[in-house]
Design a protein around this nucleic acid. Structure first.
Lengths: 205, 205
DNA sequence: ATCGTGAACGGAGCGACGTTCCGTTCTGGC
DNA sequence: GCCAGAACGGAACGTCGCTCCGTTCACGAT
């Protein structure tokens, strides 16, 4: 890492390209909000007044479009990490708060988590963005909480954030189920020495 | 055979109906194992040497077919509950073991959890079977662990089992992620008094 | 054995979807 | 004004879940 190319902007950007990309982003934001991130591609293209071909040229994978739409929200979530750590009464409280910030972000987008790791190869742009931006933030929070001896479970930030993502993925209006409570349960497990798994002796049958 | 009908079956069952149902179940089991529970309906029907119409007549919803295939496994999982409670060194160990039994069951069927609550109305046969059979079992385990003061978090069996289901839903070959570890983390949270959520004062900005 | 009938079958067909492909349009430099 | 080539757009293809209805066939009555 060193003198990385500052801004290798290619020669120019045609005006219609920029206009269409803007239209697509606005349309996608609207459609995502009303119909969820699983909305049909055609619907988004139509809302943008654009052909599906154009949509695919700008955003080859659905997750590319999703990250483009939500990038700034993810960014502000990432930036909230250090701030929370500074303001919270304890590192653990910061971890818990930040995770819930993340949950609120994911929860408001129906089915977002279904995208964030939906691909079989798990190599979507969303996945990458999460790992690049969010995992380091959570790692710092966890390290601080560990240093304060509030967290003892040997779990990586990646494991934790992915678990939360999975939990929130299925957000549905079930009155008997509260994701936030579950997430709190998960996070509170960090305070516990992880128990060994007792297994029945198969020989006893 | 003898008087092999202790249960007064309704009028009668045509032989071809029974034959086709058997074929479908066997084919479904094979296809589920090789291609996951999301396998195309046509593939299952073809493997059974049957038309899709027949498949749908026997199993109107995909989850009906799934429960038919896995019913006995779910059943044995349910029956393992009390046994584990009796044999384990502590009620909490029994809870943890039973949950992992459940995880192993779900984990081996790719995408099973995607079905178990896939419907928008969440009213699938699979959902019902889980609630009817598994939730009571886990409730007993949790009660025992609470009585032993090993579990203090106010979480219902339904919430816990659903959380586990959500976690396992996305089982994918990610070397950096281990569902079992996450589940253990979740369960170990049961030992903790649930923390209050600290929230930053929005006035501070 | 045969026959009639209604339940059971099966696969063509429909609509929705993701994705591709290529003839057409239009931008921007000359 | 002109043109090369980038960008467009939507028809088209393959796949999927699910339905619908003409055909087949099991089985009790005869």
């Amino acid at each position: 890492m060193g003198t990385s190319a500052p801004h290798p902007q290619p020669p120019r950007r045609r005006s219609d390209v920029q206009r269409n990309e803007r239209s697509l982003l606005e349309a996608a934001a609207a459609v995502f909000a009303s119909s969820g991130v699983d909305a049909p591609v055609r619907e988004i293209a139509a809302a943008a007044g654009v052909g599906v071909g154009t949509l695919y040229r700008h955003f080859p994978a659905r997750s590319d479009l999703v990250v483009a739409v939500y990038r700034h929200q993810i960014e502000s979530c990432a930036q909230a990490g250090p701030a929370l750590l500074a303001a919270a009464p304890s590192p653990f409280a910061a971890v818990l708060s930040w995770i819930h910030l993340f949950v609120d972000f994911l929860g408001t987008k129906h089915g977002l988590a279904r995208v964030w790791q939906g691909d079989a190869d798990g190599f979507t742009a969303l996945h990458l963005l999460f790992i690049d931006r969010l995992v380091p933030v959570l790692t710092d929070l966890l390290d601080a909480a560990r240093k304060a001896e509030e967290v003892v479970a040997p779990i990586t930030a990646y494991q934790l954030i992915r678990a939360v993502g999975d939990l929130v993925a299925w957000t549905s209006p079930d009155p008997d189920y509260d994701v936030r409570r579950t997430v709190t349960l998960l996070v509170s497990g960090l305070k516990q020495e992880q128990p060994e798994l007792w297994q029945p002796d198969p020989a006893i049958g």
